[in-house]
């Protein structure tokens, strides 16, 4: 099969790393060759972060280049807008509609673009914007946004619930397992 490319983007601290690890782990159990590229160090400090998940028969490059992503899973609106150039024509964008102001906006040096959801929808892309933050809070914590998004993403994979749950169990601390499972379910049911 042709290699599939998923970009997971967001703001440092939102849990994008855990999402990419979880997905990578699951894809490996399904027998794919998998590469997951992560971001560590300085950019984790509230900066724009991007991780790449690639799977197929043989995956070479660990990164996704412009025009190659089948799907962008974005934890925040502005970050979805930032990386549209990486999406394949007709690709899918799943985005948490939350707005997190970057420092230039907070400091008044730049403006947060308006009506981003509409502008994304005007692209040659399948856009699914929804409020993952509220669902995460309902599940018990704003930190569970990543699992809500994984749940929403799960609709586009033909993996069983057991397979997802197994990957979740292996990826999140046991203390927060129930809350994260709940967040995943609510994302999937939404």
């Amino acid at each position: 099969m042709e290699t599939k490319n998923m970009m997971i983007v967001g703001v440092g601290g939102q849990g994008t790393l855990l999402a990419s690890k979880l997905l990578g782990r699951l894809l490996l159990t399904k027998g794919f060759d998998v590469k997951v590229s992560e971001v560590h160090g300085m950019s984790q400090r509230g900066g724009s972060v991007v991780t790449y998940v690639r799977w197929g028969d043989r995956v070479c490059s660990p990164i996704i280049d412009k025009g190659q992503a089948d799907c962008i899973l974005s934890f925040e609106m502005l970050e979805a807008a930032r990386y549209t150039e990486y999406l394949k024509p007709g690709g899918r964008i799943i985005v948490n509609s939350q707005q997190i102001n970057p420092m230039p906006v907070i400091a008044g040096a730049a403006a947060y673009p308006e009506n981003l959801a509409e502008k994304l929808a005007a692209l040659d892309a399948k856009v699914d914007a929804f409020d993952a933050l509220s669902l995460a809070e309902e599940a018990g914590s704003s930190k569970a946004v990543n699992l809500v998004l994984m749940g929403r993403l799960a609709k586009h994979f033909d993996f069983t619930d057991e397979e997802w749950m197994d990957a979740i169990e292996k990826s999140v601390p046991s203390k927060f397992l129930e809350m994260n499972k709940k967040a995943f379910e609510s994302g999937k049911a939404s």
Partner: peptide, 20 residues
Amino acid sequence: AVQKGEILSEEIPARPPVMC
């Protein structure tokens, strides 16, 4: 030939790392 993607015609403010 190189694949290309679509850029949003919008000023996207940078998101530099910040102190927590």
